[in-house]
Amino acid sequence: MSVQVAVTVGSIVLALILGSVLLALVGVNPMEAYPSVGALMFFDQWGWQDLFLKMTPLLLTGLGVAIAAQLNLWNIGAEGQLYLGAIATTWLALEFSESLDAHFMLPILLIGTFVAGGMWAAIPAGLRSWFGVNEIITTLLLNYVAISLADYLLFGAWRDPSTLNFPMTRSFGESSYLPMIGSTTVHWGLPLGILLAVLTWILLKSTTIGFQIRVAGDNLSAADYSGFNTKNLLFIVLVLSGAVAALAGMTEVAGIHHRLQQNFSINYGYTGIIVSRLARNHPIGVIGTAFLLAVIFVGGELLQVEYQLPIAVVYLFEGLLLFTVIGSELFLSYRLRRRVAV
C-alpha cells in the first residue's frame, strides 16, 4: 500500500514538473504560479468549498467507472449516464416537487435517478452480456444520444416560457433541493458519494456477489468454470456502474442549479474515467483521486483568472497526470505480480 501511495505521489510531482515546463513555454513562471494558486485553494475556506463541490460529481462518475472496472469492463459512458440522471431528476422534480415535501421528494429523486441510470446502462450491459457487443463503443456512442435527448427536451417540452424561451426548464420546487452542509455552499451530494464508495467497498469485500465479482475480475473463465453465472454478473455490474454515475447528474441539478440547462457537465463523465484509473479502480481510492482532479480543475480555473490561460490547461494537466501515473505502474507491476502469485 505504502509503495503504491509513494509511487502515485511521485507521479503527481512529475506531472507538476512537466506541467511547469509547458507553463514556462507560454510565459507563466511556475515558481510563482503554483504557490499562489495552491494558497488560493488550500488556505481559503472558499477554496475548500469549491474543491468539495467539484469533487462531488467526479466522485460519483469515478465510482461508477470503478465498479465496471472490477470486471475489466470499460464504462466510457459515464457522461451520458450523468445526463440521463439529470434528465430523470428533472422529470421527477418538475412533476412532483411542488406537491411533495422534501422527506418524500429527496428519496424519490435518489431512487428514481438510480433506477433510470441503471436502465440506461442496461442497454450496453445487455448487449455485452448476451450478444457480446463491445461495451467501450456502445457506452461511448450512447453519450451522444443522451446529450441529444437532453437537447430535445430542453428545446421542446421542457422549455420554460417564463425565461423568455431560453432552453432551460423552470426552477424546481424547493423540496427537491439537496440540503447544504451547515452554512457552506457544499451540498449533501458529497457525503452521499463517500457513503456509496464505502458501501461499494463493503459489497466487494464481504458479500457473496462481491466475492464472485472479484473472482470473475481476476479470471472470467475461471469464474465460469466455478459455476458462476458470469453473464448475469457482467450485466449487474455494468448496470450498477451506470446507476451510480447517473447520481452525479442528480447532485448537479438538484444540488446546485435546481433546473436543467444545456452543457451543465464539464466532462465530469469522461473525467470520472481518470478518477477511477488513478485510484487503480479502488472504491475508497476514488475518494482521494476525485479530490485530486477537483484540485486540477479549480487550480486550472485560478490559473485562468490570475494568468489568463485558456481552460485547455486543465485538460493538459489531466493528461499529464494520467500519463505519469500509468507510466509509473511498471514500478508496481513486480509487486502486484508477486501478490497475484501468492
Partner: peptide, 16 residues
C-alpha cells in the same frame, strides 16, 4: 488509460 491521457493532453496542447 494512456489513450485517454493522450486525448486530453492533445486537446490541452491545441487549446493552449
Amino acid at each position: 488509460a494512456s489513450g485517454l491521457a493522450l486525448a486530453l493532453f492533445g486537446t490541452g496542447l491545441s487549446g493552449l
